[in-house]
C-alpha cells in the first residue's frame, strides 16, 4: 500500500515537473524577443508582416491554381508545355533576365551619394513591395550592389552619377508613400546628404532586363 502511494506521488511529481519545465521553456521562447519591442515597433512589424502575408496568400492561391491546371491538362492528356513556358518567363522576370512593365513610380534624385545611401534606397523600395527596380536603366538583381569604383559609385560595373533616375514596378501609391513618409528614407537622405528629389506615380513604367549573365560559376543546383 505504502509503495503504491509512493509510486503515485512520484508520478504526480514527475507530471508537475514536466508541466513546469515546459512552461518555463515556452516562456523563454520568441515572445520574449517580441516583447522587447515598443508599441510603435510592434505596429511597424505587424504592418510589414500583414503586407507580406497578403502577398504570400496571393502567391499560394496562384501556385495552387497552377497545380490544378497542370492536373486538369494531365487528365485530359494535353501537353503542359505552354504552362511550363509561362513559368520560365515568370522566373526570368523575377531574376531580372527579362524586362518588366507595369504600374509603379519614377523618382529623380540628386545628391552627393555614398554607396550605402544608394543601397539603403534599394532596400527601402524592396521593403515597400517593389517587384522590379532599375537605377539609370541598370536592372537591380539580387547580386547588384552599389560599390565605390574608381572615382565614382558603380552598380554592376556601370558608373552612376550624382543625379539618379530610379524606376520601380509596384503599387504606385504604396511605393510613393513609403519613400516620402516622415522619417523615411528620402527625409533621411535630405538631412544626411542634402538630397533633392521628386517622386511620380505612373500607370506605366518599364524596367529593363539586366545585361549581365546571371549563370553562377560555382553554385550548382542540388539534385
Amino acid at each position: 500500500m505504502t509503495r503504491r502511494i509512493a509510486q503515485l506521488s512520484l508520478t504526480v511529481v514527475a507530471l508537475v515537473v514536466g508541466v513546469l519545465l515546459i512552461g518555463q521553456l515556452r516562456s523563454q521562447a520568441p515572445a520574449i524577443e517580441l516583447s522587447g519591442l515598443s508599441a510603435q515597433e510592434l505596429s511597424d512589424l505587424i504592418e510589414t508582416l500583414s503586407t507580406g502575408n497578403a502577398q504570400l496568400t496571393d502567391a499560394l492561391t496562384e501556385v495552387q491554381q497552377q497545380v490544378a491546371e497542370y492536373d486538369r491538362l494531365a487528365v485530359a492528356g494535353d501537353s503542359t508545355v505552354t504552362l511550363t513556358r509561362e513559368d520560365v518567363v515568370r522566373f526570368s522576370a523575377f531574376a531580372g533576365l527579362q524586362a518588366v512593365e507595369g504600374q509603379g513610380i519614377v523618382m529623380e534624385i540628386e545628391a552627393q551619394f555614398q554607396p550605402t545611401s544608394v543601397n539603403d534606397l534599394i532596400h527601402e523600395l524592396r521593403s515597400a513591395g517593389a517587384e522590379a527596380i532599375a537605377i539609370d536603366d541598370i536592372r537591380i538583381t539580387a547580386t547588384s550592389v552599389p560599390v565605390l569604383g574608381t572615382g565614382s559609385i558603380e552598380i554592376d560595373g556601370v558608373s552612376i552619377g550624382n543625379a539618379l533616375r530610379v524606376t520601380a514596378v509596384g503599387s504606385p501609391d504604396g511605393l510613393k508613400a513609403a519613400l516620402e513618409r516622415p522619417g523615411g528614407i528620402l527625409s533621411l537622405l535630405a538631412q544626411s546628404i542634402a538630397a533633392t528629389f521628386s517622386v511620380e506615380t505612373r500607370d506605366h513604367v518599364l524596367v529593363p532586363a539586366t545585361e549581365r549573365d546571371l549563370t553562377p560559376q560555382v553554385a550548382q543546383p542540388v539534385e
Partner: peptide, 29 residues
C-alpha cells in the same frame, strides 16, 4: 509532361536555368 520529349527536355533546362538565376533552386558550392 506527355508532349514532345525534345521540347520538354529543352524547356526543362531553360526552367532550371531561370530558377537558378532567380534563387529558387537549392545550390551547393
Amino acid at each position: 509532361d506527355t508532349g514532345s520529349r525534345t521540347e520538354i527536355q529543352l524547356l526543362s533546362e531553360r526552367l532550371l536555368a531561370a530558377r537558378v538565376a532567380a534563387g529558387a533552386e537549392e545550390v551547393r558550392g
